[in-house]
Amino acid sequence: MMLSTSSGPRRPAWLGPLIAVVVVYAIFAALTPDTFLRTQNLLTMARQTVVVAICALGMTMVIITGGIDLSAGSLVALTTVVVAWMLQSGAPPAVAVAVALAVAAAVGAVIGTLVGKLRMMPFVVTLGAMTVLRGAAKGLAKEQKIDCETKGLETLLSADVSAPGLWITLALAILVALMLGYTRFGRHVFAVGSNEAAARLCGIDPARVKLLVYTLSSFLFGVAGVMELSTLTVGDPTDSIGLELDVIAAVVIGGAPLAGGDGSVVGAVLGALLMTVIKTGAVHNGMPSWTQEIVTGAIIVLAVAIDRARHGKGRR
């Protein structure tokens, strides 16, 4: 699919992560060709990327505005709990999902208002939200995992290529990418992250842009939460602790500077995929968990270091 215009030979930001994914995949495939190349393995990796990838779509928007959202993991857990709780109380799955997504978007609207209108630091606001939402999830679940009849939601990430979750993820990625690249709102998102004062000067209301960005991103975290529930089949208030860091890592590997003003949806999704490939490759090769953590961490730092070297040229 070529959405790109023939606007010049400039290398896109996601090329680096793409090469990295291909190279790492090739290495693992060479090491364990009998298992790593199986279609089933590809599908498993795709499924395992879904949650981080959907979150990364939202986080990319937030990071482009120069913000950060640390509450992603807690919100995913809260969403699993809300959906499970609704299902347990007899709601049909569509209603349960709709309510959970509405809750997620509402959370985002509150965060967006605090960050936009009240000009509070996103780090602080979402740090607080992280704990508040985690507590809310535990309270709603009465400090238990909520067992529920998933009523078909578990098929969202079924084990074949027709799994709706995969296609929903792809569709959302395209939508968000188009929104950022081709719409007026998308341009305003970049403008607010590049130079908020300049955006204000041009009549753009940064508070409104941020409100929308945080609402949309939290909505996406909610979608990721529904996918998570599809995997877990229980509402788990202790789920996804530290997920936000994986998500931020994916976005950063995808070439977005935390200072804002830049970022790539495709890069972020590839960043998420890269981490899954490493994780899966580690299992296939029988590598102990700690090596996998070291490698993932090193790749994050490396990606940023290379980006720095690239941009730092000629600047001080």
């Binding site: 215009t5 606007s7 081709y182 341009r187 403008a191 300049a198 000067l201 041009c202 009549g203």
Partner: peptide, 27 residues
């Protein structure tokens, strides 16, 4: 500090506006 987005292109800066079409191709 206020007038321009230094890290973005000339085209981006010139066309930065509250108004403008909802969908606008990079080209």
């Amino acid at each position: 500090g206020e007038g321009l987005m230094l890290r973005r292109s000339i085209a981006d800066n010139v066309t930065l506006s509250r108004r403008g079409p909802f969908v606008w191709k990079p080209k």
